[in-house]
Write a protein that binds this DNA or RNA. Sequence first.
DNA 1: GACGATTTGGACAAGTCTGTCTAAAAAACT
DNA 2: AGTTTTTTAGACAGACTTGTCCAAATCGTC
Lengths: 217, 217
Amino acid sequence: MTPAIAPDIAVARSHTAKRLSILDAAARVFCREGFAGANIDLIAAEAGVSRQTVYNHHGDKENLLVAVVREITERINAGVFETLATFPDKPIDLEAELVEFAVRLNQNCMCNRDGKFLRKLLQTEGERYPELFAGWREHGPAKTWAALAARFARLALSGWLDLDDPDVAARQFLALVNADLQMALIFGDTVSEEQLRTAASNAVRCFLRAYGKPRPV
Amino acid sequence: MTPAIAPDIAVARSHTAKRLSILDAAARVFCREGFAGANIDLIAAEAGVSRQTVYNHHGDKENLLVAVVREITERINAGVFETLATFPDKPIDLEAELVEFAVRLNQNCMCNRDGKFLRKLLQTEGERYPELFAGWREHGPAKTWAALAARFARLALSGWLDLDDPDVAARQFLALVNADLQMALIFGDTVSEEQLRTAASNAVRCFLRAYGKPRPV
DNA sequence: GACGATTTGGACAAGTCTGTCTAAAAAACT
DNA sequence: AGTTTTTTAGACAGACTTGTCCAAATCGTC
């Protein structure tokens, strides 16, 4: 078996490596130059691959965009899921733990490279290829909001929070967390961890002033 | 005098009309297709003008982008300034008046066509032409935040609010107001006034739960 | 009706980009 | 070592853009 499987794996490894390299370069270039301005020769060069190879792997330029979006969406969803699992369901110090959670959320989902790429691609090409992003639209933020809302609802039930509408609260939490980062995100600046922590801290303080309750027994 | 001025005015009127028509069409096309994808023939057609006229007015394609950004930035700044003047400095019913203010702010500044254009152009071309948007960056949102913060500080002084940091509160207010509109804004959907009002209402309720005080005497 | 400025439509060269094709080279497999 | 698959480099046609040029047409004014 091994002699039959090993080559497949080897092929798959190099094949996949090139595939990822191309998707990576394509994401960078699409993001930097926009779809129309993206040059396939440049993508190939940045991927360290010949142009023909790009065409071999993904056919069309439009097809390449589809593949890029699919790839990034999957990575982001994984990151969101992973981070949501670290939500402080049974907190000791709710404020501190929410701040840490917010920092993780931003680092893993919004502020990393994938987040920046997806956000920009959405803005740039979202209207032109609505069907491309329709999936993300429903499975991405909507799912995130719902999951976060469920966590907040639980905290409300166990007496930590006083909420009317957990869905609204979840959206507001995310909005507050990004309040101080708007400019940096729009301009694609890199955000230092200190900025991230300050932003999260401000956000959580406001959130808990609005919805917090004294620590339950 | 009139015989000397009248023709100038008439010329200026038609000249200005065409100029605005071109800038308008250019904004639409740049926004839809990105800088690289924007076609000058298309801009001319949408402006109802010949291509040569576009070149007569603005010379270069890059120059045209500069003119578009300048024009839109000015319009937006005017809208922000005008709306800020309607801030409820001496409220009777603070919650209701803040909601109305938030709705106006979104209608006049964030959610109208100019706001959408500028936001998208910034995302698309902000990194490529940083000097182009540097002015906006400092004079736009920074000024808005500061002005709004000053209004909130006044409300705190007169006993309506309990604030640590008016600047943070101002950013949070704006973030909250947009919390429910994120998706629509990213995808360029049109936002109904009802959505706007609900969003503003949720935002103000949260904001006042965090920072509000019982009505002062 | 004549004049001056602006606008128009179309032609044009120069450049860029996509997507295909080829034959040669490299890599992987048996 | 021999075979098969993938990759490469380069040439190529076709299409599309930008920016310029020019002669004809249009417009508002005198």
